[in-house]
Design a protein around this nucleic acid. Structure first.
Length: 591
RNA sequence: GGCCCGGUGGUGCAGUUGGUUAGCACGUCAGCCUGUCACGCUGAAGGUCAGGGGUUCGAGCCCCCUUCGGGUCGCCA
């Protein structure tokens, strides 16, 4: 029978002096200061408390156990002779009369030191995640995650949204990412799929008459990981609203997110409603990305015409030339070269540069090719001495991307161009509905084929009739971006089967294709669907931003590694032949 | 799948043009220490330098292959 705790390890203060208490926790550290005199640091979820060892009996118990064992300590609270102002419990200590060993740590050396686990090798951290999570810094991110999710849920309920769970085992969808498949025991050769998002279910809910739906929804996509993208699974704050426009969705998000970001974020400043808005094409022009970071004041400018006729090969006719002028730049030649190399790695093409000397002349990098256009360039870019100009040249999309990467790096590197400690939201709007596919060379859907086109069916018919260029058709689709990180896509959905068919007709598909690919949704929409719109901000990404972490794994309780392996549980793993047999699965691996 | 970076006692790192016994910090163990709080001091143990092959009189270091990890591009309606 274990003595119950009377207090937690973060709780005792001077007011508790002389009380008889029982604490329980992990033995974090032992500082032996004399013979039969030592201090034990006892840690639980709530904090740490100092236990003072003054007798041979207690000393023998402590010496018999390894650090990180769990113990229960019963004793008297005493005012410390030497207090520690840095600790909440630093004014008191507990003098034990009984120490009970609850759970031994049988190893005297751990895979890493608990309070420095963030410095340890990540594979070790993941393998021993239960030890890693003992580190308060690591644990606090998980607590933050809980608080953020609770706050999101509360805010959504207050906005009259209904939380509805949708199936985890569902049908494979031909669109989007690679599915995770689950073999169906009762249906040989057939498979369930885990949902990439509850997209179709929430649209069906709208058709059923649920006016406002939300869910902290698990989503599964079998795609490769990134620093800000966990492999396999992640969570979205998925929401959908009936009889709603883009503006209705925006106002809910602008109402819900900023207070939560301001309250729980590392930075406690968040942009308020209305968020900045920028058209997709303008974002590419000015920021070189569809994920603009508005905290950086630099903007990309087009100087293609200014340098026309230059001898410099990358400026040749047909190429696009972009410039990003960064004033007050004192980077040395060595740093500039490093910057350009980093840009090339991230952007995939090489940037160029020059700078403006004190006397106004151009120097360094491609200065030789810019000097002939000196006055025009100075005027167009508003150049002053001490300005570094990054240049990107090539195909339009590559030049934009390169300039965009350079913009972010310069903003982070050169003082005075980035107001870092804030959350700056923006909406990217007016996405193109169609694009020319790089492989096919033909017209394809740019993003989600189920977004409502800007002009509805009429615009589509004109495009089919050849009266307007289909590439100019926009979708009522939007991205939510915060500090250069994409939090979400959303759209006003296409709820009209007729418009849906017109939209498909433009990419040489027809009614049969719509019915075949999304039968449930198409059928449902034929029974009277409300216009509806929604969005699904990534919960993990939001928590990552709020925690100020660069890796998404820091805010997931049990993350998988880059290769989608759960090192701790050993997933994925092999299964027995009997299991495979039941599922009608034969494993046949080549090589 | 492409490219980049990395793998050195339990942990984190250093290791010079390739040259004697692979060094530092933390941790562990032992001794000393009665007010520590990242306790301190003294000492000790602990290494297949990821694996394999090659160059060389000689490889932790140079080359090739393999493997594992991280980043990035592709990919992510």
């Amino acid at each position: 029978m274990i003595q119950s705790r009377t207090h937690t390890c973060g709780e005792l203060r001077l007011g508790n002096v002389n009380e008889r208490v029982t604490l329980a926790g992990w033995m974090e550290n032992v500082r032996v200061v004399g013979s039969n005199f030592a201090f034990v640091v006892l840690r639980d979820f709530y904090g740490t408390t100092q236990i003072v060892i003054e007798t041979e009996e207690m000393m023998n118990i402590i010496k018999g156990i390894n650090k990180e064992s769990t113990i229960s300590v019963t004793g008297t609270v005493r005012e410390r002779a030497s207090k520690n102002a840095k600790q909440p419990t630093g004014e008191i200590e507990v003098v034990p009369e009984k120490i009970e060993i609850l759970g031994r740590c049988i190893y005297n050396e751990l895979p890493f030191e608990i309070n420095r686990s963030r410095e340890a090798d990540e594979t070790q951290r993941l393998k021993y995640r239960y030890l890693d999570l003992r580190n308060p810094e690591v644990k606090n991110n998980i607590i933050l995650r809980c608080n953020v999710i609770a706050a999101l849920r509360k805010a959504m309920l207050e906005h009259n949204f209904l939380e509805i769970t949708t199936p985890i085992l569902t049908a494979s969808s031909p669109e989007g990412a690679r599915d995770y498949l689950v073999p169906a025991r009762k249906h040989p050769g057939k498979f369930y799929a885990l949902p990439q998002a509850p997209q179709q279910f929430k649209q069906l809910l709208m058709t059923s008459g649920f006016d406002r739906y939300f869910q902290i929804a698990p989503c599964f996509r079998d795609e490769d990981a990134r620093g800000d993208r966990s492999p396999g699974e992640f969570y979205q704050l998925d929401m959908e609203m009936a009889f709603a426009s883009q503006e209705d969705v925006f106002s809910v998000i602008e109402d819900v997110l900023p207070p939560i970001f301001a309250k729980y974020g590392t930075y406690n400043v968040a942009s308020s409603a209305p968020f900045k808005r920028i058209a997709y094409n303008d974002a590419l022009e000015q920021f070189g990305t569809d994920k603009p970071d508005y905290r950086i004041d630099l903007r990309i400018q087009d100087i293609t015409k200014l340098v026309a006729g230059s001898e410099f090969a990358p400026f040749a006719e047909g190429n696009t030339v972009k410039a990003i002028a960064c004033s007050g730049c004192e980077l040395t030649r060595k740093h500039i070269d490093k910057l350009c190399a980093d840009v090339e790695v991230q952007a995939g093409s090489k940037p160029y540069w020059f700078k403006v000397e004190a006397d106004g002349s151009f120097a360094g990098g491609v200065a030789k090719f810019m000097t002939p256009h000196h006055d025009a360039v100075v005027e167009a870019l508003g150049l002053t001495p001490g300005t570094l100009i990054g240049i990107a040249a090539g195909k339009k999309s590559a030049a934009q991307k390169t300039a965009g990467v350079m913009r972010k790096m310069l903003g982070a590197l050169v003082p005075g161009h980035m107001d870092k400690e804030r959350y700056e939201f923006c909406w990217v709007v007016d996405f193109p509905m169609y694009e020319i596919g790089e492989e096919s060379g033909e017209l394809e859907f740019c993003h989600n084929p189920f977004s409502m086109p800007g002009g509805g069916a009429e615009t589509l018919r004109k495009a089919i009739a050849g009266e307007i260029d289909p590439l100019t058709i926009t979708a009522q689709q939007y991205d939510l971006v915060c500090n250069g990180i994409e939090l979400s896509s959303g759209a006003v959905r296409n709820h009209d089967p007729e418009i849906m068919i017109e939209a498909f007709r433009l990419v040489r598909l027809g009614e049969e294709d719509v019915k075949k690919k999304f039968p449930a949704m198409y059928n449902a929409f034929c029974y009277g669907a409300p216009p509806h719109a929604g969005i699904a901000p990534g919960v993990d990404r939001m928590v990552m931003l709020l925690a100020g972490e660069d890796s998404i794994r820091e805010i997931i309780p049990f993350p998988m590694n880059k290769n989608a392996q759960d090192i701790l549980m050993g997933a994925p793993g092999t299964v027995t032949d009997r299991q495979l047999e039941e599922l009608h699965i034969k494993v046949d691996i080549d090589e």
